[in-house]
């Protein structure tokens, strides 16, 4: 399946062709760009006229060249021999809701101020240890297992985080497992002790900052409504100073009020952060911060503007990586993983402070998705697990002809459930952004490869 797209920089336009079934990427000229768009049935009226105006010899020549990269019958037969192993139902990763409480009350929080619409709860040491035992007992053949400390704000329950990390290390060693930890924090409680601990123990740390001061303060408010921007920014800088080249992400959220989010990335880059991610908010359509359909074209343009900023700063002191522009075609995951996606509900589960098991943090407390409890010693709900395990790109009809299917893996099950009512559906707003981000990532991949 071929896909043609263009990229605009400094007043010039470049054309690319991506073959998603083979994972091949080409620079293309304008005639090829038009011919591939014709194959995709995506020519605009203006492009149809451009194609008609091209000299017939040029079109003939380009078509012959294009035919040379089209999938042959034997290549197709070889591809169709692929046997998808399906999702594995041995558990690999847990999202540990160490605390359902928060010192911020962000307006767009899907967790309703960190409490997930329930009473404030802190996970006990006993429950944390039971969760680790559950992970190891259910991890089967897997050697590499993971725990993500999540909230609410996990640092509000720092003592239990510390004891869980210590217990997990001992249990992993005893069972010949490699256990890695990650954490998502709002950075309010970062100090020397927590910074040193997270730097030592966490494989990745995600720190929530939204970018520009006014953007951040408009939605990320302290419980007492005071500004937290300076505290968070300074704490994040202290952490990054200690962190060096190890993995972290300064992660923001953009909403309907800041679809010019490249400016937020620019501010974060100016502040000295190099590993940055900005995610689109996902909210009910009637929410004032929800992204509206008419804003999508503007958002897609903004990703291109961000890519130009990325190229401007590439190789300078202000270089940055952007999570959604990371792609590694030559050393990427195998097709099995690309079809599996995140593994929510099958190999990745969320454990709430009281030990309840849910398919992932986005399903926490959701009616009909409670899978059991790590404290009761019984097996968890395998029926729900198999329902999630059966959902992958190959069963989503909307993904069949999408060139991004092997990178987005069919999208987020929780978004599909909350906004389309069914985990086997896709969430169309995310689809458009995922396609644009892939195109942009491919362009940057080509540019970086050229520079090497």
């Amino acid at each position: 399946m071929l896909h043609a797209f263009s990229f605009h920089r400094n007043g010039e336009t470049e054309y690319f062709v991506f073959d998603c079934e083979k994972g091949s990427l080409y620079y293309a000229d304008f005639p090829i760009f038009l011919l591939v768009k014709q194959l995709e049935n995506k020519l605009t009226e203006e492009e149809k006229q451009s194609l008609n105006r091209l000299p017939s010899e040029t079109v003939k020549d380009a078509r012959e060249e294009l035919n040379s990269i089209l999938e042959t019958e034997s290549e197709k037969a070889e591809r169709e021999k692929f046997e998808y192993k399906g999702k594995n139902t041995t558990v690999k990763a847990l999202c540990l809701h160490i605390c359902h409480d928060c010192n911020l009350c962000c307006e767009y929080c899907f967790a309703s101020g960190g409490t997930y619409k329930t009473a404030r709860q802190y996970m006990s040491e006993k429950t944390a240890k039971a969760a680790i035992d559950f992970l190891i007992a259910n991890s089967g053949f897997r050697k590499n297992i993971e725990i993500d400390f999540f909230g609410g704000e996990p640092l509000l329950n720092f003592d239990v985080v510390k004891s869980a990390v210590d217990y997990g290390k001992k249990q992993a060693k005893a069972h010949n497992k490699v256990l890695t930890y990650t954490m998502t924090t709002n950075a309010v409680l970062l100090d020397k002790e927590t910074i040193d601990f997270l730097n030592e123990e966490m494989d990745n740390v995600v720190i929530s900052v939204d970018g520009r001061r006014d953007v951040h303060e408009r939605v990320r408010k302290a419980v007492n409504n005071e500004s937290t921007y300076d505290v968070i920014l300074n704490n994040a800088k202290e952490f990054v100073k200690v962190r060096g080249s190890k993995r972290y992400y300064i992660r923001g959220t953009f909403t309907a009020l800041n679809t010019d989010f490249a400016e937020d990335v620019k501010v974060l880059s100016d502040e000295g952060f190099h590993q940055i991610s900005i995610e689109p908010v996902v909210l009910p359509k009637d929410h004032k911060l929800a992204i509206r359909d008419e804003q999508i074209p503007q958002i897609l343009d903004e990703y291109e503007r961000l890519a130009n900023l990325y190229l401007d700063r590439f190789g300078t002191e202000k270089w940055f990586s952007f999570f959604h522009f990371l792609i590694d075609l030559e050393n990427g995951p195998c097709l099995h993983k690309r079809l599996n996606g995140c593994g929510a509900g099958s190999e990745y589960l969320a454990i709430l402070p009281n030990g309840d098991i849910y398919p992932c943090h986005q399903f926490a407390g959701e009616d009909g998705f409670l899978m059991g409890n790590v404290l009761d010693g019984r097996d968890f709900d395998r029926e729900i697990q198999s329902r999630f395990a059966s959902v992958n790109v190959t069963v989503k009809s909307e993904c069949k002809d999408c060139f991004a299917k092997y990178t987005c893996s069919g999208g987020c099950a929780a978004n599909a459930y909350h906004y389309e009512g069914d985990i086997t559906k896709v969430y169309p707003t995310s689809c458009e952004m995922a396609r644009k981000r892939l195109e942009t990532a491919l362009v940057l991949y080509a540019k970086e490869k050229d520079k090497k």
Partner: peptide, 24 residues
């Protein structure tokens, strides 16, 4: 080729599936 220049080719790996890579 005159109209196309390959950047990378045939990078999708259909082997693998060991299940050890990370699970959002």
């Amino acid at each position: 080729m005159k109209h196309l220049k390959a950047i990378v080719k045939d990078t999708i790996r259909r082997d693998g599936g060991c299940g050890e890579c990370q699970s959002c």
